[in-house]
């Protein structure tokens, strides 16, 4: 059975791109979220195997969302999507419970490697 994924990003472009990368590798994108709040809501509702999480989003940022999701499910597997120069924020996200990270611009191979590590 393929793994289910929830993609959280405020940009449609990014969501589409990550979605394509993952779907092409057999993942099942079960939901998308545009804000941190939506992400928490959808996680509780869908209980996906994996969450990809943007750091900067309106309403609630990715780091707080990770914190809330991990509180709800300590085994949640969250992959942070960061940009260059967000070193400190990524560290914070990992302290909040994220398992790994990928850096934009995305290279499909790197995204998939990270996903495998998080799921592995």
């Amino acid at each position: 059975m393929s793994h289910s994924v929830l993609i959280c990003d405020d940009a449609i472009f990014m969501r589409t791109m990550i979605g394509d990368i993952l779907q092409q590798s057999g993942f099942d994108v079960v939901g998308e979220a545009e804000t941190g709040l939506q992400a928490i809501e959808k996680y509780k509702q869908l209980k996906p195997d994996l969450v990809t999480m943007d750091i900067v989003m309106p309403d609630m940022g990715g780091i707080d969302a990770v914190r809330e999701i991990t509180k709800f499910d300590p085994n949640a597997r969250v992959l942070m999507c960061s940009a260059m120069g967000q070193q400190a924020l990524v560290v914070e996200a990992i302290q909040a419970g994220a398992k790994d990270f990928v850096v934009k611009p995305f290279q499909p191979s790197r995204v998939l490697e990270a996903v495998q590590r998080v799921l592995g």
């Binding site: 960061s82 260059m84 070193q87 990524v90 560290v91 990992i94 790994d100 790197r110």
Partner: peptide
Amino acid sequence: TQLSGVRAYL
């Protein structure tokens, strides 16, 4: 390695 600091932290 990207964000090597974070990777080291991991």
